[in-house]
């Protein structure tokens, strides 16, 4: 039983990071109707920026927050630039063109990261506050993993507040439902889209920054995370924040619990098996709307 509970907790911790990435991805799709493959690249950029910023500001508790937030905001600014320069011109173009452009961004950002930071792995130190483990069920469970669960929960609440308690959220929901109607109502839709894309990038950037104390950072991080994020979002339903939450939990927990009975090399089978099962039952995902 202890083994099961600890695996469950590990799974929820992984789901927390996945949710941060997937929520931004689904938010962008819901409002902008663009499948942004460069979302994983933005996550990777956030991770690399955080390592460089922490080289500069140090690795204390306060420095950790500074580097994570700075990385998040820098990536959000880059997101706004990408939306204005690249994506704004292709909203009404064919889906294939949109995919090509975002895939091109994957290549460009990947090349830039390799050019700036090189291929050697990078690490940041664990902030002292979260170092070590909490005694739990006969072992030490990493404090940082518990912290990630808290961050994931805070992100769920923050997104709910943004979406349902602010005028920005009302506009985003309006754009998801009918953007033409929003335009007719006199809303500055291009500005709204820039804000949404920037918000999505911020979540991805923060997620990338937050994994740096627990993972070694290297090129290739982008493709690894985007595959999982796409699975999460398709399971939850494209454009649904609630769906991203449920999808993240399903993927994170299923991959972790499966380790009790299956070797880790089967993790992709578990994840994609889940995807196929959900799509067979509900082709639009668990919370997706039929358009």
């Amino acid at each position: 039983m202890n083994e099961f509970l600890l695996q469950l907790l590990s799974g929820i911790s992984a789901a927390a990071v996945l949710f941060l990435v997937a929520s931004g991805f689904t938010l962008v799709f819901g409002a902008l109707r663009i499948i942004n493959f460069a979302h994983g690249s933005v996550y990777m950029l956030g991770a690399f920026l955080a390592t460089s910023i922490s080289d500069f500001v140090g690795t204390g508790n306060v420095s950790f927050w500074i580097s994570a937030l700075l990385a998040g905001f820098s990536v959000a600014a880059l997101g706004a630039l990408i939306e204005i320069v690249c994506l704004r011109r292709i909203y009404h173009r064919d889906v294939a063109i949109q995919l090509l452009v975002t895939f091109g961004l994957v290549m460009i950002i990947g090349g830039l990261v390799r050019g700036i930071w090189g291929s050697a792995p990078r690490q940041t130190a664990m902030p002292p506050l979260f170092d070590g483990g909490v005694p739990m069920l006969g072992t030490y469970f990493p404090t940082y993993s518990l912290f990630l669960i808290c961050v994931g929960s805070a992100a769920v609440i923050a997104l709910w507040l943004i979406m349902y308690q602010t005028s920005l959220g009302r506009l985003i929901r309006g754009a998801v439902d009918d953007r033409q109607l929003l335009e007719m109502a006199g809303v500055n839709v291009p500005l709204l889209f820039t804000a949404v894309f920037s918000l999505g990038a911020f979540f991805a950037g923060i997620a990338g920054a937050l994994v740096t104390p627990q993972q070694t950072i290297s090129v290739g991080l982008d493709l690894d995370v985007i595959v999982k994020a796409v699975v999460v979002v398709v399971i939850g339903g494209l454009g649904s924040i609630g769906g991203a939450l449920v999808g993240s939990l399903m993927v994170g927990v299923a991959s972790s619990i499966a380790l009790i009975w299956l070797p880790p090399s089967w993790s992709l089978i578990v994840v994609f098996g889940l995807l196929v099962t959900v799509l067979a039952i509900s082709p639009q995902g668990l919370f997706g709307k039929v358009r």
Partner: peptide, 10 residues
């Protein structure tokens, strides 16, 4: 483990 795996926590 699958070479694509990045999260070793679980």
């Amino acid at each position: 483990y699958n070479l694509q795996n990045k999260d070793f926590g679980a």
